[in-house]
């Protein structure tokens, strides 16, 4: 499923004294099956942007096409779009409400008037996709689970709608490193194996560096960078200026270069940093 955003703006309280432009004339295309990271500081407009994509906010200006269907067209049924574009909000575990894990995940498909056996298949599949043990957990109350597990139940609830696009707003906020790595792994599998188009909103460059194909960086409502991960990380100074940290190793290489090293590669992770530094150290001693 492809997404096309054209000159999109969203203005809160338009015409009021507290008018604020949250999204400022943004355009981009996302191809079917892409894994895109949307990065920005708090207040950069990333959450507003994704809520317009799912049809929750009506853009003040501009157009959104989902598979060539114009979302801003009044005749388009928003509910049809929402079935295709699944949105996982920040702290989605706060939205769990049912008595059992099964019922919570089944809530969406049930509202689609699906048959009981189809719902059953979807619940089982979704739980498997997020790495939850069906036999062990389906009858458990979601409120008895750990934070990381609760979040997976919430994500499974969205997956049970069989979305073609999955948008996640900071899915790892507040999780410990282990739970964080597990959830990111599952999202990666969804993208690679199930070919779901994924938009991942994050403010952690370290988190997205090894995960996504492409990064869109927002600042004060504007799109400031858009490209593959390596080309975005090259803009070290711009990223730091707008309050986004880069991974420690990227900063390290940058500082080494300021001290007279000549490392041309943009490194994304520790392994790459090791290789770049080894090359530098060993290369020099061969001179």
């Amino acid at each position: 499923m492809s997404i096309k955003i054209e000159n999109l703006s969203y203005i809160y309280d338009q015409g009021m004294p507290f008018e604020t432009i949250a999204v400022d004339n943004i355009s981009f295309d996302i191809e079917n099956g892409e894994f895109v990271g949307i990065i920005g500081h708090t207040g950069s407009g990333k959450s507003t942007l994704i809520q317009t994509i799912n049809g929750l906010y009506k853009p003040s200006k501009g157009k959104i096409f989902i598979n060539d269907i114009d979302l801003t067209d009044k005749k388009v049924k928003k509910s049809d779009i929402r079935k295709k574009v699944g949105l996982v909000f920040q702290y989605p575990e706060y939205q769990l409400f049912e008595e059992t894990v099964y019922k919570d995940i089944a809530f969406g498909p049930k509202n689609l008037n699906l048959k009981a056996d189809e719902i059953d298949i979807r619940v089982k599949e979704s739980m498997k996709l997020v790495g939850l043990d069906f036999e062990k957990l389906n009858e458990v109350s979601p409120f008895e689970l750990s934070g990381g597990q609760k979040r997976r139940v919430a994500i499974a609830g969205v997956l049970a709608m069989n979305p073609e696009v999955l948008i996640l707003d900071e899915p790892t906020a507040g999780l410990d490193p282990k739970a964080r790595d597990e959830i990111l792994k599952q999202i990666e599998i969804l993208n690679k194996k199930k070919k779901v188009t994924v938009l991942l909103v994050s403010h952690s460059m370290e988190e997205v560096a090894n995960l996504v194909d492409r990064l869109i960086v927002l600042d004060k409502g504007k799109k400031v960078l858009d490209g593959d991960v390596r080309s975005v990380f090259k803009e070290y100074e711009l990223l730091t200026d707008i309050g986004l940290g880069v991974p420690q190793v990227t900063e390290l290489i940058n500082k080494l270069n300021l001290r007279g090293c000549n490392i041309k590669e943009t490194v994304l992770n520790v392994e790459e940093a090791k290789n770049a530094i080894l090359k530098q150290l060993r290369g020099d001693s061969n001179d």
Binding site: D176, P177, E206, V249, A273, K274
Partner: peptide, 18 residues
């Protein structure tokens, strides 16, 4: 233990192994 170490610490270890 499922915890991280700072990236530079990990890097130092890997360089030492080399």
């Amino acid at each position: 233990l499922g915890l991280d170490v700072p990236q530079v610490t990990l890097l130092a270890h890997m360089l030492k192994d080399e």
